Computed example of a mutant assay.
Amino acid sequence: MEAGGERHRTARTAHTAGRTARGRTRIGVALVMVLCGVLFATTARLSGGGSIRDESSDVVGVLQERGRDIERLTEENATMRAEVEGLRGAEAGAPTAEGAEHVADAVGLSEVSGPALRITLTDAPSSALSIPGTEPNDLVVHQQDLEAYINALWAGGAEAMMLQDQRVINGSAFRCAGNTLLLEGRVYSPPFVVTVIGPIDEMTEALEDAPGVEAYRTWVGHVGLGEKIETLETTTLPAFEGSLTLTAEAAA
């Protein structure tokens, strides 16, 4: 009897424990459902009954839309500038016409032709991540890399320069976001191309002497960042079409 009673108590204890565990499970499920309800209610309040994803800013979409706006405004600006040039030319014998043309050349408001260097910088292949100690950030052409090349070219006597398909001047400002380039409101992806007219030998030597260019070339050899330099016998760069007003971005 004692043995049977002991087994009975053991079985009852086990049954009670199982019932308690099932009760706790039901309570846990209920709590999860309550929390889900709170989260759904909060989500509804935040999104105003719509999709939060729809309300969040799509950075790429915003930049592309801004780029289209900038292109439209740039075309309008070019049209108005052409009208101004036409009116200026109509002023027969104007004493300031020659001086105005000289200033236009100096600040980049006219086309320039001549021998040039074309430099192409590209991101490294993703396979380079297999190199020990390499991080994704090491495979990207950064803003300071472009600045190193551009500053060296100006120091080497560059007369006119174009970044991607836009003429740039000394006051031009650009920003890199991830592996995209923001220039005059437009968004560009690599490869990044710099075309520059000027003394070929001097500009090439300036690139060799620039510490920033040297640092980039170290990573060219290490992870495979791209660098291609071509000499062009002659090329024509378009006139600068951006604003000549100094902005906070350009001054930064």
Rank of each mutant, 00 (worst) to 15 (best):
E6C: 00
H8C: 07
A21G: 04
G28S: 06
L31V: 14
G37V: 01
F40Q: 05
A41P: 02
R45W: 09
G48S: 02
G50I: 02
D58A: 04
V62C: 04
G67M: 01
T74N: 10
E75I: 10
A78P: 05
M80K: 04
A82K: 11
E85R: 01
L87H: 03
L87C: 03
E98K: 07
A100Q: 13
A106V: 12
V107K: 00
L109A: 11
E111R: 13
L117Y: 12
T120C: 05
A124R: 02
S126E: 13
S127Y: 01
A128V: 01
L129I: 13
L129D: 02
T134S: 01
V140Y: 00
A148D: 07
Q164N: 02
N170Q: 15
G171V: 14
R175D: 08
T180L: 00
E184F: 04
Y188V: 05
P199K: 13
T204W: 06
A206T: 04
E208I: 02
G212P: 09
E214G: 11
A215G: 09
Y216S: 11
T218Q: 11
V220N: 09
H222K: 13
V223T: 11
V223W: 00
L225A: 07
G226D: 02
G226Q: 03
T231Y: 15
L232C: 05
L237A: 12
T247R: 04
T247E: 02
A251M: 11
